[in-house]
């Protein structure tokens, strides 16, 4: 059975790692739903947050194939219960329609979104939340025909676990090099 998994990958900051990670998904015919890459809280370590739908058996294989790449430090997978997660989005809407139809502002408020710019031509709306929150806002506004552009980020997340597995791994490796 397919479920949504969030895979957190940490790698050394060496060129070409992203290619190697995405190639693992392509080879096993798993689509990446979203991808976010940024520096992690550990200096010199990059963090990749990847979501995909697949079976648990497959996500275990993906994890091991990713970790097999030399410059990857660690890959672990999570379900939504295991993490705090966020996505953000931006919408560009027509100011004229917004002014003509009070429903637009009501929807923006109802969804807890923020209007971050208003000018005579367009207005910009920002919304942070889960995928579902964001898509609901988009659909509600789109139904009114006001959306000119829509952008949604990849997922970012931190784990709920009290253990820090990357730190443990790095400490363990540190010990190995000393001995």
């Amino acid at each position: 059975m397919n479920s949504l998994y969030t895979i957190l990958v940490y790698s050394e900051n060496i060129a070409g790692v992203l290619n190697q990670i995405t190639a693992v998904f392509t080879r096993r015919q798993v689509n990446i739903e979203s991808l976010n890459v940024c520096a992690s809280s550990t200096p010199g370590v990059h963090k990749y947050t990847i979501t995909c739908y697949c079976t648990e058996e497959m996500v275990k294989i993906l994890k091991k194939q990713i970790e097999k790449r030399i410059d990857v430090l660690q890959a672990r997978y999570y379900t939504d219960e295991d993490i705090f997660m966020l996505e953000s989005s931006l919408l560009k809407i027509s100011t004229q329609t917004m002014l003509e139809n009070p429903e637009v502002c009501r929807i923006v408020r109802h969804h807890g979104a923020r209007i971050v710019e208003v000018n005579p031509t367009y207005s910009a709306v920002e919304k942070t939340g889960t995928t579902e929150d964001i898509l609901e806002l988009y659909e509600d506004l789109n139904r009114l025909g006001v959306v000119r552009q829509f952008a949604r980020s990849g997922r970012i997340c931190i784990t709920r676990d009290t253990r820090e597995y990357l730190d443990e791994y790095l400490a363990e490796r540190e010990k190995t090099v000393e001995s």
Partner: peptide
């Protein structure tokens, strides 16, 4: 280059 030999016997991300 000012060359001095190196011996890599450890890569942090590779076990």
């Amino acid at each position: 280059v000012d060359y001095a030999p190196e011996k890599v016997g450890f890569v942090r991300s590779y076990v």
